[in-house]
Amino acid sequence: MNEKILIIDDEENIVQLLSLNLMCEAYNIDVAYDGEEGLQKVETFMPNLIILDIRLPKITGWEVCQKIKENPKYKVISVVILTASAQRTDRDKAFSLGADEFLSKPFEIKFIVDRIKAILEKKSKNL
C-alpha cells in the first residue's frame, strides 16, 4: 500500500523538489500552497504524513499543525515541520504543538527522504 504524503509550502520550487524526489520513492503526493488549502486537502486526501512549512499565506503553519493535532480524526497523521527559520524557540514550539519531527532548510534531499521513510515505517510498525 502506497503511503500518502501531503506537502504544504508556498514556494513552488520547494514543492516541486520535494514531490519529485518523494514520488520516485513510490509515495503518493499531493500539494497545497497555503494553510487553508492545506487543511482542505487533509480532509480530502487523508495523508499519512504532512510536510508543513511555517511561512504560509492566510494561516500560519503553526495553526495548521495545531488544528491537525487537536483533531482526533487526524491523530494517526505524522506532521513534519520543514522551515527555513530554524531557531531554538521554533523547535520547541513545534514539539509542544505535537509535531512529530522538526527539519530545517536548506536540507540534503537524501536526509529528508530517509527521515520521512523512517517515520512512516515506524508508524506502520506501531499500528
Binding site: E11, N13, L17, A84, S85, K105, P106, F107
Partner: peptide
C-alpha cells in the same frame, strides 16, 4: 535560506 534550499535541492536531484 529559501532560494538556497532550491539550489541545493535541485542540484542534488
Amino acid at each position: 535560506r529559501t532560494p538556497l534550499t532550491s539550489i541545493l535541492g535541485f542540484a542534488e536531484t
